[in-house]
Computed example of a mutant assay.
Amino acid sequence: MASTTGAVNAEIDGAGMGNAAAQSVLLPRLSIILDITIIIAIAIASAALLIRPLETQQRIIIGASDRGIVAGFHEAEFSETEGRPFRWTMAEASVRLSAQGMSDHLLALRLATRPGVPATAPQPVDIELNDISLATLPVTSAPRIYRLLAPRALIQATDNAATLRTPTTRISDDPRDLGATAFTVTFAALSESSWLAPAQTVAVTGAALALLLDSPVIRHRCTAMAGRCPVHPD
């Protein structure tokens, strides 16, 4: 009976050793495949960023993609004639914008005002960037795009606030004080920054390599190499 039990235990131990050996062979192979896949992905991402940076301009659709970056606007509405969303401004409304480089920028706003305002007597809309006046726009009831130069000296590296100041009025039975209707706001650098693409490439490549070196597979390999790799704290 004892010999039978010993034989069974020996078979179990042999099977366990066989599984362990199989795992020890399979893990390095999977590790190599994973390493090659990550390296190829990093190379593709780096090449793509060098060809075209992540951001070239910021385009905000007022009433659709403006959550958390607008203030002083009424609730979003949908224009049946334009086929797009918009918001009415209050007496003062603002949109937070991100710098797209360290050069002069183009600030483009698609605006209109209440129906019936003719081109001969437009409604003035004052546009400021970071509390500095850029222009007073002659806005009529026909939607159009107004393009303004935002000098580099006014651009902040962090948030930039484009402010619209306008007289308000009321339309028929609408109890709201309405200024102008805003459809889109676009903020774009007029010249590309030569450092942007390399900086983005270095950032993405560094982050990917950090993840690669901190992966469980690499940790296992480092352990097997008996201290030849740096120790990563858990």
Rank of each mutant, 00 (worst) to 15 (best):
R221P: 01
D126V: 15
L134Q: 03
S193W: 02
A210K: 14
R96T: 06
T201E: 08
A203D: 09
R144P: 01
T120N: 10
S94W: 07
M90F: 01
V185K: 00
A207Q: 14
A162T: 01
L149P: 05
T166E: 03
D104Q: 01
A226Q: 15
V217W: 08
A226H: 13
S191P: 05
A203L: 13
V202G: 02
L190E: 04
S98H: 10
L148V: 05
N160Q: 11
L213K: 08
S103W: 11
L111A: 02
L154V: 02
Q123R: 15
D173C: 05
P167W: 04
P143C: 05
R219C: 08
L211D: 12
R219D: 10
D214P: 03
Q200H: 11
A99E: 10
W195C: 04
P167K: 06
P118N: 06
A93K: 03
A157P: 03
I155G: 01
T113V: 07
L137K: 00
T205G: 10
N160I: 07
Q100H: 08
I127D: 00
R219H: 09
Q156R: 15
Y146S: 02
R221K: 11
L211I: 08
A210P: 10
A203T: 10
S194Q: 13
P115S: 12
I155E: 03
R96M: 08
A180F: 02
S193M: 12
S141I: 06
A208R: 06
A112I: 01
W195M: 10
V185H: 00
D159M: 11
L190M: 12
L111N: 00
P216F: 06
P167R: 08
F86E: 00
R114I: 06
L149T: 07
R221T: 09
P143D: 04
P216A: 08
S98G: 12
L129W: 08
I155S: 02
I132G: 12
T158W: 09
A197K: 07
S103K: 10
P122V: 05
R147H: 09
